[in-house]
Amino acid sequence: MNLVKYLIALFIFTFSFILTFATFTFPSRAEDSEHIMRSSFATTFQIDFEGIKEVYIYRPQTFRFVTRVIYQKPDFVYTEYLEPDQLKGKIIIDDGKRRIEYLSVEDRTRILPSFNHPQMETLREMALKVVLSNFKISFLSREEMLGREVYVFELSPKNTISPSLKLWIDKETYLTLQRETYGPGGEPVFFFRYIEVEFNKEFSREKLYEKIPQTAQIKKEPPLVSYFTEKEITEKLKFPVCFPTYLPPGYVFQAGELTEEKRDVKLIYTNGLEVIVLFQRPRVNIMMRHHRWVRTDKMRIRYVTGPYGSTLVWDGEDKTFVLMGDVPVEELIKVAQSVE
């Protein structure tokens, strides 16, 4: 009888030990992985941090960038380019209200709406949902990187055209310290890693702003951007809007934007990692260099493939369309053909 009791006690002990181990050491359960993903999406707004980041892009040539990045709670992001020489000294400051881009080589400044604006949160939240539904997340291992503990995750797509990713996420802050992106064929597409990190560092924002010449332009207000749903777009516009009936696997409608004259529409679709954008406006001639042609029975499309995806341009009856996205050009052609 006692033996049975001992066995039960041993079983409970072992079981609870395994459970504790699994819960606190490995994020093996799906909701833990999801929690980490969710936190990693928003982490840049929750830390005071400085790091040097190395970025490689293979399209198909290799581009290499080195930047200094500073994050400050709750919405301040500073980026400074250290390499290549042609971009050295380029600075981007985004303080949650507006985004200032300064290119020292040309001494030119540009003001954009902030990417960290509270309204962006809705877009980020949505991107996260789409990522969680489009990818299978698996926990690979625990490693050490830059003297910190990191979780290594793999995101494999549930469709055949999306990329797969490997992420190295800091255990304490959930900051992604390294990310590798592979195309559908397994070819490397993108790679970044931090080569230096420093957490909980204090900064003087003023000092950072001083690096940009205080010209009159800095005080300029950024253009206003509002996002609309499909229905709102249709109601607000002065002419009927065309929507595509086909979207590449994994893509969903994200938002629509209008210009002030309500003549140009921009429809944005996303798979959580990338966007496909469809512009439409009253007919206009769009100048493009080095394009190729593709002819279907309905239309003639000009297209070009660049380092960040493909661009398609074609004319409808009374409208001109521009479609851009980072998916195989055949997929974009299918989208173009489905526009009604």
Partner: peptide
Amino acid sequence: SRETLPWVESPALSATLMS
């Protein structure tokens, strides 16, 4: 639009934007 997503290939894109 692309760069507002958290996981785009920044900062390369900003380079394009500015240049």
